[in-house]
Design a protein around this nucleic acid. Structure first.
Lengths: 188, 188
DNA sequence: ACCTGAACACCGTTCAAGT
DNA sequence: ACCTGAACACCGTTCAAGT
């Protein structure tokens, strides 16, 4: 008897949190958040759905938290008071682009019960501001304002929220306009 | 035979979209969005779940859109260029308070596929700004910036997103601080 | 017109069992 | 340690039927 070319359990790449999150993100991006189910995720990983619980004991909630953390981006903290405004502008644009690329994850930023998933981002934003000479208290306000703006505005964009003019919204310009408004208001 | 005190089908208040939305909001506020199911909603209305579809043919999606529209608040448009900044500040605080009071609805602002649900709000914001002498183009940017900020920041608050300082966040002060930042940046 | 009952094709998660 | 199979208690929605 000739041995089959080994597509059985023994020779599969073993499951890991990394692989699970990546497969989940692929489903969300391709089919939408609503179609991310443990059973479908199991299929994508060529495993029974229940195997996932061995790696994510808190189940689907932990999976969703993982997606939020995986999509988050923190600004680069450049030492010395370089142009912090430009650094934050760059970060805001990158984060928006990443959220638009994984739009299905956006609702989870508002839903998911893992506050820690955005801690690094907020802390880095504050650090950039402090390095730029912004006082502690102002930096704390500005960090949440900026993060809130990016998430909220991108949410409006994904919804396709129209405005009072009958015209089509140029979302790139609209986002940059608001970003300048917010960044311009922050002063040392 | 004495007639029973009429708790049967004939004498119930008839179903209506209004009654359905209100019952749904009560479930969301009391038990969370995750526990809003058509079956539970039917129970609350003392009706089989399937009866709801007669009033909301698009089913649960239409129900969720209804919740978003029901919770939305528009600013009061005072004719003449009164203090538009104060009017918008008041609206922003009221809207945040309303969203905190119905926190379960917040994710739907980011999720729900009914762009029209926020059209009135955006249009009113722009109108207030225009009445305040802000040029059309600036008003359009400012309206989306402000709405994005309110939704995004309130989302961060509901998540409990911490900041870089180890201390507890005073969310009321944090929100007002960011609001002043945004409103202060808008100029005629 | 308005509501019900039964049914269909799904869910997330548990638990004991296999290797 | 890691995965499977079967089962439980749910979902949203359809469709024919009742009044």
């Amino acid at each position: 008897m000739v041995r089959q070319p080994a597509i059985n359990a023994q020779n599969r790449a073993p499951l890991s949190i990394e692989r699970i999150i990546e497969a989940a993100l692929q489903i969300v991006d391709g089919q939408g958040l609503g179609r991310l189910t443990m059973r479908r995720l199991g299929d994508a990983l060529e495993v029974e759905a229940m195997a996932i619980y061995h790696h994510l004991p808190r189940g689907k909630e932990q999976l969703l938290d993982g997606l939020v953390a995986h999509v988050a981006i923190s600004p680069a903290v450049t030492h010395g008071a370089a142009d912090w405004r430009e650094a934050l502008r760059r970060w805001a644009r990158d984060y928006r682009a990443r959220l638009l690329g994984h739009a299905g994850v956006l609702p989870l930023l508002v839903t998911s019960r893992n506050p820690a998933a955005l801690t690094t981002t907020t802390a880095s934003l504050q650090e950039v501001l402090r390095q730029g000479g912004i006082p502690e208290a102002t930096a704390a306000v500005a960090a949440h304002t900026l993060l809130g703006y990016v998430i909220g505005h991108t949410a409006l964009e994904v919804r396709g929220t129209p405005d009072g003019t009958g015209e089509t919204v140029d979302w790139d310009a609209r986002f940059d306009g608001g970003l300048d408004l917010v960044l311009g208001a922050v002063s040392p």
